[in-house]
Design a protein around this nucleic acid. Structure first.
Lengths: 347, 347
DNA sequence: TGAATAATTTAAAACGTTTTGAATTTTGAA
DNA sequence: TTCAAAATTCAAAACGTTTTAAATTATTCA
């Protein structure tokens, strides 16, 4: 291991000058700078990060913690973001520390990581209402960026406009004459699901439509969940069946398609289906039969704004100035059609 | 931030003693030890990891690098291992650094990470024949554990017995009277696929059976890949169709099921199907219709032996002594049956 | 040529631990 | 009591950078 001192004594310079030469400080003579760089190269010098961190107080690491669950969709989505993020951060010489935790106390792994590795910032996924992780990081004054948003946020975040996602879809369906529009939403505690519920309910109300309790389902984003919920919605046990279903994801829509098929219902003749499309590979809305109408916002698009926000935060920018809300794109395909003539009456 | 020195001067001790007291050295007086610990607690002392790393030369981090691709199956599998691993490593106070890389040069991200964060060891997934990453890490003398194995390994690894996976399945099918047994295998360059190919070919030969070129497919582990390959195998364009297909994963099997259905073939009456089951959630072999016969070895089972090997390596144990090969369990369900009477003749 | 100024380099401190080798205190036996 | 041995504590060095404040050298202008 060659050190700064080695180079210094080799060239009869002081470590200070060598340090400055290598870090591109302006006050060092052009000739010496070049000489130092050449020598460092020749002696195969690699700065010791530990020493650097000790004096700078910065680790150059970004923490990312997830609850370890068995839910593939969430993991795939998470992985997409994490992969993109790690690539972008690497360009800024930042590394990602990942931790899956089974801990009941969702703050504990943050404390542990902070003690152990002192990440310079965190990326936090899937915020919930009054999220203790957010409160914790605020109280410790650790910079963080949230994927998602909740509670009138004063922190840095990237999110899609989930209210718009839900309401735009309701608008489209109403224009087609639907009035019994059901929703199979994501997990209740998650903010995106709450936002979409609000958007959905608001838009329904605006159109003068009511929503009975049984028409709004919450659950994990799996095909089976979609199947079960759709079966319950379409069985007519609790009232006339919806003429349209709004799905939280393409996986949910997949289950809805299966249920419709099993019940002998044709999409879109008997039932219109719309979903939000996170653009997870291998669950492509275009490949559905019939092709699925969606609001689309690839989840991997989150990586760039999150990485950007992290870097700006580290440069000292204020969290409030690092909030991004993306609009989702509406793509009408073949899973939506005018409501069946005999089924336009509201609930 | 309270430091060792703060505690020392508070108690009129030397930093050395305080350090030893907190790290449980035996030569420190029991009373002082307790006193120091109490005071550290009271003053909310947190050792500075950077300083610690500087003197110990260890980062306490484990690197994990993956090629960023668009293939969900690979990602889900990877994620399973990584999640389990991070949880287990955390218990040993080790953190996982993750990096997805688009770099053409697959060694480059290792060099970068080594320079930047100096992980104490790496975990390497999906080894290929003559893998340059392995050579690189060996040349730099960095400890590493491989998930998978290749080239008569002299390094630490965890792998399942892939030859056995393939051959046991061929044995079962032969016992059922099958002689035209095709295989839809994983990506050609990956060692597990090569091992399974060898096991499959050997076992076929042992049973006196030949394998025409067109009966052995390589490709990514997706349902669509399974569908396409199965269609080609079952179309009889290149010869009589197989009476049994061996699949590299449950996702492949899913595609095979779809193809059989589309061609009006019944499983297992017309076609037997077997797969290897990594136990990825939401692709459950039991839920197939008919339930899928598999060799089973949950990919998450890799976490524990990998984590263990890492720790032992860091304790100085020799890589050659840290090799684990797990046998897969054969579970016969309803997707296998005796070969159709009129189709027992070999290719 | 000399003074003033600008450009470059330096020595030393700092970051907060761990560890080495020496020094001090305590204990036990004579 | 005294001395050797054991137990405990200490001062200082080491880890390899960055940064501050001072010192040196080079340049410019009169």
């Amino acid at each position: 291991m060659t050190t700064l001192k080695d180079i210094a004594s080799e060239l009869d310079l002081s470590p200070a000058t060598v340090s400055r030469a290598l870090n591109g400080f302006p006050e060092v003579n052009a000739r010496t700078k070049e000489l130092v760089q050449k020598t460092a190269e020749r002696m195969n010098y690699r700065p010791n990060q530990f020493a650097r961190q000790l004096v700078s107080g910065r680790s150059g690491m970004i923490g990312m913690i997830i609850k370890s669950t068995e839910e593939t969709y969430g993991n795939v989505a998470f992985f997409q973001v994490m992969s993109g993020l790690s690539t972008l951060l690497a360009e800024a010489d930042l590394d990602l520390i990942f931790q899956a935790s089974k801990d009941q106390d969702i703050v504990a792994p943050y404390e542990r990581m902070l003690k152990k590795t002192s990440p310079d910032a965190f990326i936090l996924m899937g915020p919930e209402k009054n999220d203790p992780r957010i409160n914790f990081l605020k109280s410790k004054d650790i910079p963080f960026v949230v994927h998602g948003s909740v509670d009138d946020p004063d922190y840095a975040f990237y999110d899609i406009d989930n209210k718009q996602v839900a309401s735009s879809v309701v608008d489209v369906l109403c224009d087609l004459g639907h009035s019994r529009i059901a929703m199979i939403n994501g997990p209740e505690p998650l903010s995106f699901a709450q936002e979409r519920r609000t958007g959905y309910l608001n838009s329904m109300r605006t159109h003068g439509l009511t929503v009975p309790d049984f028409a709004l389902h919450h659950g994990v984003l799996t095909s089976d969940q979609g199947y079960t919920s759709a079966l319950s919605l379409l069985s007519e046990r609790r009232g006339p069946r919806p003429s349209a279903i709004v799905c939280a994801s393409t996986t949910i829509a997949d289950g809805v398609y299966r249920a419709a098929k099993d019940l002998g219902l044709s999409i879109p003749k008997d039932l219109s289906v719309v979903a939000h499309d996170d653009a997870i590979p291998e669950m492509r809305a275009v490949n559905f039969e019939p092709a699925l109408t969606v609001t689309r916002s690839p989840i991997r698009d989150a990586s760039a704004p999150l990485a950007m926000a992290i870097q700006k935060l580290l440069e000292g920018e204020k969290p409030e100035d690092l909030q991004t809300i993306a609009k989702a794109e509406l793509i009408v395909r073949n899973s939506t059609a005018p409501a069946p003539k005999d089924r336009t009456d509201p609930w």
